[in-house]
Amino acid sequence: MDDQALLEKAAAIRTDIVEMLYRCQSGHPGGSLSCVEILMALYYRVASVDPQNPSWEWRDRVVLSKGHGCPALYAILADKGFFPREDLWRLRQIDSHLQGHPDMRKTPGIDVSTGSLGQGASVAVGMALAAKYKKARYKVYAVLGDGEIQEGMVWEAAMSAAHYRLDNLVFILDHNGLQIDGSNEQVMSLGDIMAKFEAFGFKCRKVDGHDIGGIAGAISAPADGKPLFVLAETVKGRGVSFMENNAGWHGKPMNADEYGMALDELKGRHHG
């Protein structure tokens, strides 16, 4: 897929997210829209996965540790053919395999069940250690939220990643600056995130989190035998102007007007 096609794909994925979340009248628009390009860089550029064989042993692993962003992941997995696209419209409904937070026992293509923030980081460390033990060459990518890294266990995970020299592990931070109760700065300041991960023994890079090529480059470049941390600067609610940079859209359902406005905007961008 060339860059232009990827841009159009990103708009289409966002449209799917808006459609899914409007239909179920619940879920998390802001954090789903902010991680679209990060997940696209993984699924369309970097990660080696097989939609025909989701549990292929030697695939790369993707852990959406910020599980509430799963509408973005579901839209991408459907686009890649892991399950039928129609399934998207039953998100969060009873008996749908698409749960409010990713469920590895229900949805093909989900590597780890997440939703309780912080835990995906540790699971990713375990998978990376297992890959080393199995002498396998696959990589483990974990996508974290910036509010999420306030959890102490993320730093336990980071410590162990460096201790075991997990050069097959990449943490990608969806750094949109917001969480639920406000900005990271207001709620619990994170300080110098790059310096912190560096101090924990990671190779660190910062990228524009809405530039698929840039993200793909940053996560694929060698990391000097260390675990890699990629800080992706993003905009929460990206692509729907009234949601952008607004913590109020973390977990709010759209009404009919807002849904219409969001679709118009995304379709407009898509076509021109």
Binding site: S26, G100, D103
Partner: peptide, 8 residues
């Protein structure tokens, strides 16, 4: 809690 699912 409803739609958020079993994890919550």
């Amino acid at each position: 809690v409803g739609e958020d699912g079993g994890s919550h």
